[in-house]
Design a protein around this nucleic acid. Structure first.
Lengths: 157, 157
DNA sequence: TGGTCGCCTATGGCAATCCATGGAAACAGA
DNA sequence: TCTGTTTCCATGGATTGCCATAGGCGACCA
């Protein structure tokens, strides 16, 4: 299955519109939706987004939790209650809701980062900082990367 | 399985296009993609590339992590967020993104070095220097290469 | 064995297309 | 009517695809 890949920074106009990178659009539409589903990240000040496929995975995960537990309700209120289905306009743009922009501290530019089945939308400077941190950790924990490399070298398709 | 093999230095034109060595192309297309996946090396100032098989192994590993863990997001941000799927044009060329060229210090020439299931793209002088160093170190670490027969049989001859 | 022919690859340039972006106009709710 | 939202159009720049050229390598033939 196609996945969200790469990093793109686009501008936000006075009406809160932003172009979703064309490659991200084609991933979402291939999953059957002319739009993306966005919600605040539970990790930090960043927006997360995905296509309908991964959205279904989220609901599955929630369904496996105790339906009346406080934990389930909290997760659901963020991942579902605070989520928005943002439809592409004729030119492939979406309007980022004010609450989401505020959560991520986004003003007039947004950085889309592909993470496979989901993606993130960062305020550009914050995104760069996160990437630098992630890169440093990846270097430090090179052992985490050895497993895929070893698997690929010995196995194959 | 076919593997990336050999060293080739090709020119980069004004638009950042470079011919992928024909032998590398056939490896990638045999894996089912008319293109290659490239990303900055975590180790040094060089671009790494691979076909869909190797890339698929990386994504599989990420999918085994919890989809909302900070660890997964960081690894994905580096391994997928900073990668690009570069499709061959009709003549077997790809466009090396500006960020990747900058990361490797590449200007108007690029050296492709096959490494089996993946390959590297060097600025030619840096690649030559690395090769000289690699040769010296390979000499020193030659004993790391264990005979598969010895491992399988439990003893040597 | 020497020469010629032809295919494949690499490389440059041109043209059409796509994409991001800004703004105007149509629309809906209050 | 006024405000906020959505649809449509225009544009410039970047990207992609296509064609032409040239050099190298091997195959085939004499």
């Amino acid at each position: 299955m196609e996945s969200f890949r790469g990093r793109f920074t686009n501008k936000i106009d006075a009406k809160g519109r932003v172009s979703v990178p064309a490659k991200f659009r084609s991933v979402a539409t291939a999953q059957g939706l002319s739009g993306v589903i966005c919600f605040p990240s539970i990790q930090g000040q960043v927006i997360e987004g995905c296509g309908p496929s991964f959205s279904g995975v989220i609901e599955e995960m929630l369904e496996r939790l105790d339906p009346f537990s406080a934990e389930r309700d909290m997760l659901a209120s963020v991942l579902i209650g605070s989520s928005s289905e943002l439809m592409f306009d004729g030119d492939g743009r979406v309007v980022l809701p004010e609450e989401l922009r505020e959560h991520a501290g986004i003003k007039d530019e947004a950085t889309f980062v592909g993470l496979g089945q989901k993606f993130q939308i960062w305020e550009p400077a914050a995104g760069a900082a996160f990437f630098a941190e992630a890169l440093a950790k990846a270097r430090a924990h090179g052992d985490l990367l050895k497993s895929p490399l070893a698997l690929a070298g010995g196995g194959g398709k």
